[in-house]
Design a protein around this nucleic acid. Structure first.
Lengths: 75, 75
DNA sequence: TGTGACTACGGTGTATACTCGCCAAATTGA
DNA sequence: TCAATTTGGCGAGTATACACCGTAGTCACA
């Protein structure tokens, strides 16, 4: 399980939990739609700046996007 | 407090906690020495792949590098 | 004084993150 | 079946992450 995979899964899960389409999320995070699609397919290694933007829109601590689902705790 | 700042502080703290120099860390993580220096000075937005490498060397969950010091919990 | 360990900092080159435009496949719902 | 929404995929361009080389500064200690 690579960090890309974990991040991709968390991104998709939180996005759907918020009822957002890739396009919605992209627009709110000021990112490109196709890039969100690519992130969920693990084509890119997202940077801290992007992680920060996405976490803000998804209303979760940035660290939450790097954790496995079974793990708990803040951030 | 940007995510870059948090990451930079955590990177430096964990590196020193392990008694590693920037060069030691760079070598073990298969990264460049000057790049580690730059990360600690917040010049770059590290990617997931780099975060994964550094976390492995520092023996901490990747998510731990994105959390504020006062926060607790796994990963 | 000077020597070694560590780090800041510069320039340059390459790899890759990220944007943008467009079209096709898939999904959803009337 | 049709239309609307969502997502995948690709080519091309720009921005930036990251590697590699060197130099200089700081600090500890002989």
């Amino acid at each position: 399980m690579t960090l890309r995979e974990i991040f991709a899964a968390n991104l998709k899960a939180h996005r759907k939990a918020q009822g957002l389409s890739q396009e919605d999320l992209a627009h709110r995070a000021d990112l490109d739609r196709t890039y969100i699609s690519a992130l969920e397919r693990q084509l890119y290694s997202a940077s801290l700046d992007v992680i920060e933007k996405l976490a803000a829109v998804l209303a979760v601590p940035p660290a939450a996007l790097l954790r496995l689902p079974e793990e708990t705790g803040p951030g």
